[in-house]
Amino acid sequence: MSFGQIPYDVAHLLGGGMLLSGFVLLYQRRLAAMTGAFAAQGALLALAVAWQGFIQEEPGLFISALVAAAVKAVLIPLALRAFILRLGLQRRVEPGLGIGASLIAGVALVALACLVVLPATAGAAALLREDLAIALSVVLLGLLMMVTRRHAIGQVVGLLSLENGLVLAASGVQGMPLVVEIATAALVLVLAGVAGFFVLLLRERFESLDLSLLHRHRGEGE
């Protein structure tokens, strides 16, 4: 497959869309808009996985796509939004690193991902190579978001977006067992649950979700 062929182009474009929404997540300062961008990324992920199911003729992937659409594009964003409304957090979130700096770092990470993946997968199909590069970029952007956000919700969204990247990578590889995917998804859900619990706890203790408050309390006990 190469350029000019529909399967390649669409997969490529959907992956690119996910990458773009990863950048939007990195750029966005307000929590409400962030959940919107995250929902868009989830929807794109569902489409990308479904498209992979179509071109690989793998019915299992359609199930993954459905799960992704339901959970990532609808349920989690809705839950997050409800959470934000309940806690009255519609206000801005201050990133730890400036927007410009984090965007430049994001571009550098994408370049790094390409430089790592492309030589390592020499010989594989072009589609797989670029898909993997994009997926790794999405993962790295998610990590970067977790690093640069001081706000707990931002970090949770970063974690979830990281998982989106993992699923994208998994869907691109032919013959990836469904079990692995489900296991990853479950793991992340557990992590998200833990994070949610952590957020609530934080809120109760410190009346704020700003993680910098935790600095003083590292190693607890006092």
């Binding site: 350029f3 390649y8 182009d9 490529h12 474009l13 690119g16 869309g17 773009l20």
Partner: peptide
């Protein structure tokens, strides 16, 4: 030229 990520960006 097809659809391209680059064009989207």
């Amino acid at each position: 030229l097809g659809l391209r990520v680059s064009l989207a960006l």
